[in-house]
Write a protein that binds this DNA or RNA. Sequence first.
DNA 1: AACAAAACTAAGCAAATGCTTAGATATAAT
DNA 2: ATTATATCTAAGCATTTGCTTAGTTTTGTT
Lengths: 187, 187
Amino acid sequence: MARKKQYNEDEVIKKAMGLFWRNGYEATSVRMLEKEMGINQFSIYSSFKNKEGVFLESIKYYRTQINVITSKLENSNNGITGIKTYFYDFLEFSKEGSLRKGCLVTNTVNDIKEDMEPTIMNVLKNFANEIRDLFVSNLKQDDKRDKLMINKQADYLMNCLLGLSVASKVFNKEQLENTIEITFKNL
Amino acid sequence: MARKKQYNEDEVIKKAMGLFWRNGYEATSVRMLEKEMGINQFSIYSSFKNKEGVFLESIKYYRTQINVITSKLENSNNGITGIKTYFYDFLEFSKEGSLRKGCLVTNTVNDIKEDMEPTIMNVLKNFANEIRDLFVSNLKQDDKRDKLMINKQADYLMNCLLGLSVASKVFNKEQLENTIEITFKNL
DNA sequence: AACAAAACTAAGCAAATGCTTAGATATAAT
DNA sequence: ATTATATCTAAGCATTTGCTTAGTTTTGTT
């Protein structure tokens, strides 16, 4: 055997995720990651292979964080009302500590080019599809809802959620709440 | 006097705008601009001062392009129906030639950091506010509309429009049209 | 105590970034 | 034709990028 790692991989990924979230994937350099994670480049590369590896692990961690509100929706069983609560929760989550950070997934979809980072893009798309599926199954919980409309409504809700991630960087709190209010008015 | 410019500034900006639109501000290098614009770095810097200058001119040109559909809305005078048409027009415009480009303004808001590029960010915010104002004045055209709701509805519409710019890169045509359909259902 | 293996430090790599500069070339006015 | 001046080419600048590598330090096992 030999020397032990002086750092905990989960803990440094937590810090890396914060930096990616605030800063975007492309704009975050390995030098910045060094400082934020508190370990040097050799350790970063030997633990996570490369910058993409650090990001992929960061997304995994992000998933566990957002899972707090996602699992709330999974277990709510009160249809559209549950989704609306999800939107408000998402808003709180995406501007954690009054910072305008949006959603890490949406930010990164906007940041990277599909042909440059296909692996990352795939992970992000799967992530988004899982949320859409969740919307679909929650919409189905309302008995009286038109079955043919459910997919359209899920698309609509995803669109509003994407918008909210962008808007959370530009709108004030009141505007964001107005938006959610109207979003659910006619569903 | 002396030698004449071998290129037309408007024409090269047209090409630059296309590149920024496809590629994003940060990811577009001056070397790429050289190739796309067909002139070399010296000419770029002497005509437009710096990369930011090229982008600022590109946004001006983008404005004239999108003005085709914006002025349609300005002159329509049929309230919410005009806005709906604007959304469909926007969709056509933002995926010009079956490319998934989104909206140059929204893309760039997501791309740059406010503290790094304050000048650009200001231009983009003004742009967005003009469109929101247009929504407000069009919503006022419907006599029976609740005056107190108009600002909320304008926020909501801006949110959906922002979402649409992101979604246009991820959704297919049908999903995008579904989205617009539901967006206007409850207004 | 000696060894082996993993973890560390720090220097360095080639490539790309935005921007500048030295010098050659073209051209309108005299 | 000469001259002044703007436009061009092309090389180069310092800085930053993601990643590697040579060499030192630590530490569990024998």
